[in-house]
Design a protein around this nucleic acid. Structure first.
Lengths: 191, 191
DNA sequence: ATCGTAGGTCAACGCTTGTTGGCCAACAAG
DNA sequence: CTTGTTGGCCAACAAGCGTTGACCTACGAT
């Protein structure tokens, strides 16, 4: 018996993917307003109207372009000791493996929908980790938030503002400096 | 003999100031692109063409609107111990006393000129502090950069992205948690 | 051979943007 | 009373934006 749900991979799926890839690049490089549909369409070598056909409008395109799975380990299998090192290391990978997070941060800084999406990611993917790893569950939101300030601050100055001394830091230096901070925010007793 | 250089405070100076105030508000709320000259002019209750007359073009307006003096203490009189607490405290004051820094951060995230202005402030106002306070002057740029990641990360999540748990933190909690981090980045031995 | 449809182009719409230049009222100096 | 300057408004421009709908082409199923 033939498999029913094997998606036939329509030809247009390639176009859809090309649009998404171009959109991610433009959003990451220019932010929401200056990443025009026309420019994205030109990058994807199709007509601007195709973007509308496939994603409805610019907001829909953005929503489709930046869907993030941080891929953080299951709360159960968390190394409670050096969770700091694990998180910093994972985040560095994420920021450098593609441009989605840069796009999200650049857009989030000026666009309400972008900011809300970042809040969602924080709430649903970072908070659970803090909930399992920090001593008093009631402190989890505050502790997760503190960790986020450090991790996002690094991303901001390194990948968006591009402060030269921050860009110059090696991966090892960053981990060595930031891991204790994140570790303390998540697990150390309140000051 | 009459004083020669007492500026006669022309009537238009009030208009100039109104434009700058409106511009800061709009840049802080909307970022560079969505803060339109028309909207700023309407806030200042004057005609859009006046903005051009007084500031040349939109870039000129932005440059005039965001001039930041962090007002950090002279390197000589620096409390080398709890410099962390002093810096965190000072930065919280700065972010809350007006909207200039919010405007600068929002614009810097999507606008090259904005990012470069932030680099300039970092280089000329934050670096000197690190130079005097950290053990090895050669490490000053890296250490100042690390402190900047933490301070700007807080500002980003609290004043721009507005993560609820970060907004909920009290001023005292922030100082208590962040001061040791900044202190360590600036003065502790390399890890 | 025909027909429906998926995939795509093209030209245009209405709107907003930054920016320009001409016009006008007030008012102080001569 | 004239005249020049200061401070301001108004109307318009060209360019770029998101978005729309009409039209074309290839092709698999009937």
């Amino acid at each position: 018996m033939a498999v029913m749900n094997e998606s036939p991979r329509r030809r247009s799926d390639d176009t859809r993917d090309a649009i998404l890839a171009a959109a991610r690049e433009r959003f990451a490089a220019d932010g929401y307003e200056r990443a025009t549909i026309r420019a994205i369409a030109k990058d994807a070598r199709i007509d601007p109207s195709m973007v509308m056909r496939y994603y409805g409008n610019k907001e829909g395109l953005f929503a489709a372009a930046v869907s993030v799975d941080l891929g953080l380990p299951e709360p159960a299998s968390l190394p409670r000791h050096d969770i700091g090192r694990a998180l910093v290391s994972r985040f560095l990978d994420l920021w450098e493996e593609n441009e989605v997070l840069t796009a999200l941060l650049r857009v989030g800084a000026t666009n309400q929908a972008g900011a809300e999406r970042m809040q969602g990611i924080f709430r649903e993917q970072v908070m659970p980790v803090a909930l399992r790893v920090c001593p008093d569950p009631e402190q989890a939101p505050a502790r997760a938030a503190l960790a986020a300030t450090q991790l996002l601050g690094l991303a901001l100055t390194r990948y968006v503002l591009r402060f030269p001394p921050t860009v110059a830091l090696t991966r090892e230096e960053i981990v060595a400096w930031l891991a204790p901070t994140v570790q303390r925010y998540l697990t150390a007793p309140s000051p």
